[in-house]
């Protein structure tokens, strides 16, 4: 997978979190996988169609998810992920992927994003692509967000 397709997603995680006042987002470990084994609590997955196809899955702990929702809501305390909280995590996945698709479009690739789904459950095995999935840990002040990129390119 060409790095020029990967960077927009990582940049977007950073820039979306910056919009909520969170700086100091760093790229951590990168790995390649056939089957994604998620050990955190929450995965938001969203599809891409158009000149490139694929799925992006963002996995994180419940604690990180609650903190993201809280910062999206101007610091309002979030004790649990109710309907509104889950909706906010979907919105976060939407914003990051939408932002990335705009960056891809700037480089001449027309893509569209599809509705996000959120999967709760520890110890879940995923396949999100018929090719290899690239998994990148983004270390944020709110905890780790694992960005799994399964682009069919």
């Amino acid at each position: 997978m060409d790095v020029k397709y990967i960077l927009p997603f990582l940049e977007s995680v950073k820039s979306v979190l910056e919009q909520f006042g969170l700086s100091d987002v760093k790229r951590g470990e990168i790995s390649k996988r056939d089957i994604m084994h998620v050990k955190t609590d929450i995965t938001a997955v969203i599809g891409i169609v158009g000149q490139i196809r694929g799925n992006i899955a963002y996995s994180m702990s419940k604690d990180t998810a609650q903190k993201i929702v809280s910062s999206m809501m101007m610091g309002m305390p979030v004790e649990e992920l109710d309907q509104m909280g889950r909706s906010a995590i979907g919105e976060f996945a939407n914003m990051v992927t939408g932002n990335a698709s705009a960056l891809l479009e700037n480089s001449g690739l027309k893509v569209d994003i599809t509705p996000p789904s959120i999967v709760f459950g520890q110890d879940v095995y995923f396949i999100i692509s018929s090719v290899q999935t690239l998994s990148i840990d983004m270390e944020t002040p709110l905890g780790k967000i694992e960005v799994n990129i399964g682009l069919e390119i």
């Binding site: 979907g90 396949i127 999100i128 399964g150």
Partner: peptide
């Protein structure tokens, strides 16, 4: 147009489709 399929398995999974 279809995005590629996502498939998953595990214990006690809950799927939510916001909004």
């Amino acid at each position: 147009r279809l995005a590629p399929p996502v498939v998953f398995t595990g214990q006690d999974m809950v799927i939510s489709i916001p909004k």
